[in-house]
């Protein structure tokens, strides 16, 4: 389980996270929802020790973040994290070189699923294909948790559909996923838990299935209710 406990973070004088607390379990898709600048990306960066927090605690399966965390958690940011002059196949080699959890068979499978050309240079890829290559680098790792920051950001409808398909496949199944997205419609039916963030705090945390069954409300309905 990923536990984010009372995390506070400031950028200069601006408080971005003001005591954020939530947890994400393995086998569940947890979606962080909120308007721009609410601290969704900062939370993900903090989980991966890519930005320091001022107070609070983040635990991955009960342990503080350390170098072994990166064998348990993969972070897929909203931009690709490989040099533009690198070919896709070189990026795969790089990942295989450094990550003991790299699964080449799965990488080949995703490569085929997304119809990516391994000879293409990352800098030459279209926005959609860049997003797919980015997902490939994260999802081909045999990790327990995957953090995805805006995986649908700025890409066409067909690519979005393809990426959404990934969530129902065995590539995501059994893993704990934390996702941030503005395109909530694309994955609403896939989300297990939703966490609405506002002004650096968790405003509401709910089980999407329960809310749908008991209250007949969609995630967007709850968002409207809470944020408007």
């Amino acid at each position: 389980m990923i536990e984010v406990k009372n995390v506070k973070k400031r950028y200069g004088r601006k408080t971005v996270l003001n005591g954020v607390t939530f947890s994400a379990k393995k086998g569940e898709i947890t979606c962080l929802i909120g308007i721009n600048g609410v601290g969704k990306t900062t939370i993900m960066k903090a989980i991966m020790a890519l930005t320091p927090i001022h107070s609070g605690e983040i635990l991955i399966d009960g342990e503080k973040v350390n170098k072994n965390t990166f064998n348990k958690v993969a972070f897929i940011p909203d931009m690709i994290t490989m040099p533009p002059n690198m070919r896709i196949e070189e990026a795969l080699e790089f990942m295989a070189d450094f990550y003991p959890t790299w699964n080449q068979t799965r990488a080949e499978e995703i490569l085929e699923f997304f119809r990516l050309n391994r000879k293409d240079r990352i800098g030459d890829l279209s926005k959609g294909n860049t997003a797919k290559a980015n997902l490939l680098l994260g999802l081909a790792l045999d990790v327990d948790y995957v953090l995805m920051d805006e995986p649908f950001s700025g890409i066409d409808i067909f690519s979005r559909e393809e990426i959404a398909e990934i969530f129902t496949s065995h590539l995501v199944e059994d893993r704990g996923v934390i996702i941030t997205t503005h395109e909530i419609n694309d994955i609403e039916h896939l989300i297990d838990r939703a966490i609405i963030l506002h002004e650096g705090r968790v405003l509401k945390e709910f089980d999407t299935e329960k809310v749908r069954e008991l209250e007949g409300k969609s995630v967007i309905d709850v968002m409207r209710e809470v944020l408007m």
Binding site: M48, L50, K67, F75, P77, T81, P83, P84, F98, P100
Partner: peptide, 17 residues
């Protein structure tokens, strides 16, 4: 800097930073 921020990848490698 740039669109491809490789520092993310470097800092997320499972090795001592």
């Amino acid at each position: 800097y740039g669109k491809h921020t490789f520092i993310y990848r470097l800092l997320m490698l499972p090795v001592e930073r």
